[in-house]
Design a protein around this nucleic acid. Structure first.
Lengths: 159, 159
DNA sequence: TAAAAAATTTTGGGGAACCAAAAATAAAAG
DNA sequence: CTTTTATTTTTGGTTCCCCAAAATTTTTTA
């Protein structure tokens, strides 16, 4: 029964968190728009989140997060940021990185998340070794450029 | 209707692929065991995969992959290997890496998967810069060691 | 080869997440 | 303050994936 929140419920919490941050509270319509869902679907989930004590909600009223809900949403957001940064480090285009970090932020083992976090920190916060890291990133970038070029010429040959 | 196979169906294809590799064909019971499911659940999905033309299957008979099914299973397996290697590079323990690469192998954008692949190749296949990479890995390992140590002493203080 | 055991399939049911259309309520316009 | 419009909620229905129990088929064993 209780215990673990579902992956999807986490998505809702994050969406609500972002909307609340922008305008103080979230309406059903806002959530539906943010998540590309229909209002009826949102109402259903919001009621569930309310039963779980994760959102404040009354019929026809705005939605906000309870302390528990906020705690969960914040930890998800943190994970999200980690993955977004990571994907940008490995040179995934910005929009795709944004989309896929939403996928990565769920389900993974805490230890895995921890290592991702460390990796990102290692790369971004290395005060002692900035030259080392930048040289490393440059090499990886160069490697990708060569790969792209190789694929280009491959495609030409195929045509 | 047709078109994209579901995330879960992919899981089944990979499981079947592995079993077939080991013993030539998969029985319902094998799949159920491999995936921790009940036989009745497996039958249902196997029939669906058969309708999609991804497995060969007749009632009470063994299951094997069609060419289409094998193609899909192989590409999933490849992704899986990439993620497993990657997680080991960032020092996620083996068993966890295995588990989580199953999660990563789905859903991500092809471009993201491509960059993961390149990253792993960059690290593992760098013939020109083995010293560079090994030095880099050593630094990251050292960094993680320090983090672990810092956390240890933190915990002591809290107690 | 008949009876027992094992595997498979069918049937009925459940939870999660979604939608469309209708009903209810709230907000805005006249 | 009533009518129109917008929003929200309810209702009924769908798909996906899962399970338990009963029925069926295959395999093993006595």
């Amino acid at each position: 029964m209780s215990g673990a929140i579902t992956r999807r419920a986490e998505d809702y919490l994050r969406a609500i968190y972002e909307i609340v941050e922008r305008k103080g509270f979230a309406r059903v319509k806002d959530i539906a728009k943010e998540m590309n869902l229909k209002a009826s679907t949102v109402v259903e989930m919001v009621r569930k989140l309310h039963r779980y004590g994760l959102v404040n909600y009354e019929k026809y009223g705005g939605v906000t997060l309870t302390q528990d809900g906020r705690t969960i949403a914040e930890s998800i957001k943190e994970r999200h940021e980690t993955f977004r940064k990571f994907l940008e480090i490995i040179l995934v285009p910005k929009e795709i990185a944004l989309k896929d970090s939403h996928i990565l932020e769920h389900q993974l083992d805490p230890k895995t998340i921890l290592q991702f976090t460390r990796f990102v920190k290692f790369i971004t916060e290395s005060k002692e070794r900035p030259k080392f890291v930048s040289r490393w990133l440059e090499q990886f970038k160069e490697y990708c450029r060569r790969e792209e070029a190789a694929q280009q010429s491959n495609r030409k040959e195929v045509r």
